[in-house]
Nucleic acid binder design. Structure first.
Lengths: 105, 105
DNA sequence: ACTATATTTCTAGAATTATCGAAATAATAG
DNA sequence: CTATTATTTCGATAATTCTAGAAATATAGT
């Protein structure tokens, strides 16, 4: 994952409301959760909720599947895993230096 | 780590400039790096750089130690590790449900 | 076609953020 | 104390984000 992509993902998660949305979807498991149920659970105005969900969708952290009149949201585990991998590989230890670095200890 | 704290940390890292700053400090290792050298490396106006560094400092991701006239910045590994632990524990798998959840599979 | 439910898009205002030049402050040397 | 280097704070502007009400759209049922 490129740094700019990682930053975009981090920014999407870097808002308490969106992080709550995302965590709720993770806890919903593979079945996901419709937008309306998220709205009931989190008590957010529909337009505001839609706005935040969209922010998560555009970076790929959440996907949506229509089921009749409801839109079911799913957390995308693999994107989150890529993000965590980026953080661990590039931002967690001194071994985060690139292989060609002349600064290796 | 609380959700709001995690969101604050994610927001701090969720900007390409700040993520570059943080990664540069990680790669600098335990010695850290002075503000001025960050400025040379990343080519950011001093006031802008100071602004971004401050954002990382207030959430604890970066610490600063003065050495004579220069301020040396250090990435705080442990805070990053706490953040990654939060993401893995709460936001990565279905096992992210709280222990008392009735929805456990 | 009409109705109902679910969700998004539009619009707008308040608040926050990013950027940077200029001035101010901190630490040291002379 | 003055000068010098390093860094921050101030002030201003442009851009973005957050919030939510109102209107619009999508899907299905009658």
């Amino acid at each position: 994952m490129k740094l700019d992509d990682a930053a975009a993902h981090l920014e999407a998660l870097g808002n308490p409301t969106r992080l709550k949305i995302y965590r709720t979807l993770i806890r919903a498991g593979g079945a996901g959760m419709p937008v309306g149920r998220l709205q009931d659970k989190l008590k957010i105005a529909p337009s505001t909720l839609s706005h935040h969900i969209k922010a998560l969708v555009v970076v790929g952290l959440v996907t949506q599947v229509r089921e009749a009149t409801t839109l079911v949201c799913h957390a995308n585990y693999s994107v989150m895993r890529e993000l965590v991998d980026f953080l661990v590989a590039e931002c967690c230890t001194e071994s985060a230096a690139p292989p060609d670095a002349k600064t290796a200890a």
